[in-house]
Design a protein around this nucleic acid. Structure first.
Lengths: 143, 143
DNA sequence: TACTCTGTTGGTAATCATTATCAGGCCGGT
DNA sequence: ACCGGCCTGATAATGATTACCAACAGAGTA
């Protein structure tokens, strides 16, 4: 919350670990937690520290190279995204993590109009859609 | 998540503590955390256990009598809501907690259409709008 | 009203993700 | 090759939430 708003990104050295985290995130498709990425790397025999994974995921998120979303139980999920910087939302499969990126132009408009209407300013919104993708809904019709 | 789907609510005794939590939640206006409600009650000299506060807040949420929302840092906030059961969203002041309830009919439609379009089913959505209300934006023009 | 049955309470320990700490290591420019 | 400073990572700390479980208290009953 007390973010580094200064815009000037301190020179980020390129390190083995930084690459690992980024690559691992790139390898998968859906959103994954820091813990998961850490476990995956360790499973591959890579030597990385948990702190370092957290650090790099945060950097990626800060730089807008990764999207984040919160699971209801206080866990942060990360995912590399192509449209960097561009604001967008996600339609995520709650079973397999498959994700569709969505540009909600209409929703943006709705949100800001609503904000103005009620005298609110500096409004940011969180919109996440969680469901079952076509594959998963066939496999498991009900829980 | 492993909810009691059975529909039949087991007989819920009315207890002093249950009333306290509910009243305390009703007393305030904005969203508050379990910890906060607990602290408030203790500050008033009421004898309640932390576990009990958590328990009752969850019950209220389950019954649809209270709305919940997650702060980015893994904390759950609760608030009594009038339109019980009815699905809606919130425009919350990030400074004072003042809240406006919103019915996003259009957004609902947008969401379900989008879901269908991508073959997703059983989609639920999370939409929260965080901003500064008119009072707070005057008081603190910038951070 | 006294009794009993069963859901409720609440202090405490456990869980779990995330962050802070800090000594030692590596990157990059000189 | 040398050096300064950022990066790393094991570990401890934090903080919210949940699990446990023995003692307690509604509410119906005799």
């Amino acid at each position: 919350m007390t973010g580094t708003v200064g815009g000037r990104r301190r020179r980020q050295r390129s390190t083995r670990q930084g690459g690992l985290v980024r690559d691992q995130l790139a390898a998968g498709e859906g959103f994954r937690s820091a813990q998961t990425v850490f476990a995956e790397l360790r499973a591959k025999g890579e030597e990385v520290g948990l702190s370092t994974v957290y650090r790099h995921l945060q950097v990626l998120a800060d730089e807008g190279q990764a999207d984040t979303l919160q699971t209801g139980d206080g866990e942060a999920l990360y995912r590399l995204c192509g449209t960097d910087g561009k604001h967008h939302h996600h339609l995520v499969c709650r079973n397999c993590g498959r994700t569709v990126e969505i540009e909600g132009r209409g929703v943006e408009r709705w949100a800001s109009q609503l904000a103005e209407e009620h005298g609110f300013s500096d409004v940011n919104h969180t919109i996440e859609l969680l469901g079952l993708c076509s594959d998963c809904s066939q496999t498991r019709p009900r829980d």
